[in-house]
């Protein structure tokens, strides 16, 4: 479903990704982990068509990634990027006008689940609730690929928990693939199928998480501590 072949990305002379080969298959919830500056966000942006590889190929569903891939990729940015004067309802309607796969009914369902009100203005929302709005807008789309860049960063445990629950409840793993970057591995380790570890632009591991627990008799956090040592 997502395939990166010999992908290298440089920003000027700085290397962000080096010779990355990665195949991610449909129906999986995959965590992309690594330290700050290791290339996680770059990887997501390249798959989303928001940035171009210096060399190598990226395909989503067999289609070469260009800016147009946005029609099959739902991307959650780590930034707050919506108009602050929008209400929650405005944001949902705006998103619906931009993407044909946006399911308004589902979006309102997620909105209720996240305990948001349609008439609330984004600029009056707390950081946690703005993050919840981003989840509504991202998961409201029935896109085959969902990319989430640091959806938990800077949020309190209650909000993180509601996002995790939202993911389990509203992602359709029969049809979707979810790739999520995070530092908060403890938050997501129970809901991941696979984990991809990246360091200094290199993919250093890609495994099924339960296989790690079974074969190494180790928690994911311990395993990570070991491979990053």
């Amino acid at each position: 479903m997502i395939k990166l072949t010999d992908v290298t990305k440089k920003y000027g002379t700085k290397r962000a990704l080096e010779d990355v080969n990665l195949t991610l298959s449909k129906g999986k919830l995959i965590g992309l982990v690594g330290e700050n500056g290791s290339g996680k966000s770059t990887t997501l942006k390249l798959i989303a068509g928001l940035n171009h590889p210096t060399c190598g190929d990226i395909t989503v569903n067999g289609e070469k990634v260009t800016r147009k891939i946005a029609s099959s990729v739902s991307y959650l940015s780590e930034l707050d990027e919506y108009y602050r004067f929008f209400t929650v309802k405005d944001a949902i309607e705006f998103q619906a006008s931009q993407f044909v796969d946006f399911d308004i009914e589902k979006a309102y369902e997620i909105m209720k689940f996240m305990k948001l009100e349609p008439q609330q203005k984004l600029k009056h929302l707390s950081k946690g609730n703005r993050s919840r709005v981003k989840i509504v807008l991202t998961l409201g789309r029935n896109a085959p690929v969902v990319l989430m860049d640091e959806p938990f960063s800077g949020l309190d445990p209650m909000v993180r928990n509601s996002i995790v629950k939202g993911l389990i409840s509203f992602v359709d793993l029969d049809k979707q693939l979810v790739l999520i970057t995070t530092h908060e591995i403890r938050e997501v380790e129970n809901i991941l199928d696979e984990i991809v570890a990246i360091r200094d632009g290199y993919i250093i591991a890609h495994h099924n998480v339960d296989d790690i627990r079974k074969e190494n008799k180790q928690s994911i956090v311990d395993w990570m501590t070991e491979i990053y040592a």
């Binding site: 403890r186 129970n190 339960d210 079974k214 008799k217 180790q218 928690s219 994911i220």
Partner: peptide, 14 residues
């Protein structure tokens, strides 16, 4: 929620 499971055993087994 993490408390329901031991982190070093496969969750499907638990």
């Amino acid at each position: 929620m993490a408390d329901l499971f031991h982190s070093s055993k496969p969750i499907y087994e638990q």
